[in-house]
Design a protein around this nucleic acid. Structure first.
Lengths: 110, 110
DNA sequence: ATTGTATATCGTAATATTGCTATAAACTAA
DNA sequence: TTAGTTTATAGCAATATTACGATATACAAT
């Protein structure tokens, strides 16, 4: 069917999945990397950084924005994109939680 | 086209994307949650936990396995799945790295 | 007003994902 | 052997994603 049964899972599970899915493409990882690298939140030269057409980059930016991972401010002609800390700290604490959990029960199996 | 241009991105970027993509579905988040919850790495009653058909669960497990997030050991009749710490620590350190980076340059924009 | 620059959106094609039923494979137990 | 249990795979339909060129929108500068 290709349609995800989101309503059968918890909010938390859907939230994490949505965020992870948004990061689940190398172009979008590259965008995040770039936004981290440039110290001010540089605008649309992301297109020049990536080996993709402008339309494709715009689409990827939209997905990152929809997932809440980045924010965009209109700045005159261009747009200023930057990382949304809240979303990333959500992911960070999720994986930290898992890692801590794993340390406690090391080598019980597999 | 629907085909990802992986060869234009770095190994690291592709690696993170692959791992994140595997987590990018609520059923797979639920599987990870379950593997964390049950203390021993319980086998195939994951199917009973999820609101999905057995074949679908098997498919999700396969994807998690392909991405390296879980391991599976044959145990007589059943299979013993459990989380692969290495993959998760990779993700954890990635997001930790980002979070640290963000603290340093707080509120420069947006 | 016209031209240039920066982004977004539309439409389209190729491919991937999700989910199911049905079936196979591999082992256990009677 | 036969039957039951557990997991994987094949095949299929519906939907989603990725990527592009073409075009639209919005502002800036001349």
């Amino acid at each position: 069917m290709g349609i995800t049964k989101t309503d059968h899972f918890t909010n938390k599970q859907n939230q994490i999945a949505t965020l992870a899915k948004a990061i689940g493409h190398p172009a979008r990882v590259a965008i995040i990397d770039y936004l981290l690298k440039v110290d001010s939140c540089i605008c649309g030269d992301i297109v020049n950084e990536l080996p993709l057409a402008q339309a494709t980059v715009s689409q990827h930016l939209k997905e990152l924005k929809n997932a809440g991972l980045i924010k965009g401010n209109i700045e005159g002609n261009a747009i200023c994109y930057c990382i949304d800390e809240k979303a990333l700290s959500k992911l960070q604490s999720y994986f930290e939680h898992i890692s801590k959990h794993l340390i406690n029960k090391k080598s019980k199996c597999c």
